[in-house]
């Protein structure tokens, strides 16, 4: 299973290579989600997002998510890659993807990959506004 999973934390994220990474002779379907920095959140202009991580644990949690997805659905390859550091509007920050023989498995798995990453992987995002910055979801 190991060579079928790619999990990484990177400084610069380039989603353009993910097709090659997921490609394999048994895959007829690919589903990829890319998350990027959006300019407005609740009508406030975001200058940038700053991401930090507890890297060793993040890699472990991302590996668990990828392995769980491979057990739940008939997938051939899985990629989970997240960026850290300061990212500006329109920059990609996360890419997850899966390939499978048919589209149903990879569509469902792709949603699971990003939803579970957001719940469990120790990565923190700070929204930088003009005059303040806020750690997202930190307080009720």
């Amino acid at each position: 299973m190991v060579d079928k999973i790619i999990v990484e934390i990177v400084d610069e994220l380039d989603p353009s290579g993910v097709y090659q990474e997921l490609s394999d002779p048994n895959s007829g379907g690919f589903c990829v989600f890319v998350g990027a920095v959006r300019e407005f959140t609740q009508n406030e202009q975001v200058m940038a997002l700053e991401f930090e991580t507890y890297q060793g644990m993040a890699i472990k949690e991302m590996t668990k998510i990828a392995q769980d997805a491979m057990k739940k659905w008939d997938l051939n390859k899985v990629v989970i890659r997240h960026a850290v550091g300061k990212k500006e509007v329109e920059e990609p920050v996360v890419v997850v993807g899966a390939s499978s023989a048919h589209r149903d498995a990879c569509f469902t798995a792709c949603r699971y990959l990003i939803d579970t990453l957001k719940e469990t992987v120790p990565i923190w995002k700070k929204e930088m506004f003009k005059n303040k910055s806020i750690w997202v979801s930190a307080t009720p």
Partner: peptide
């Protein structure tokens, strides 16, 4: 040992 405040990746 690490303290993990609410995560917000993605």
């Amino acid at each position: 040992i690490a303290l993990i405040p609410p995560v917000s990746g993605g």
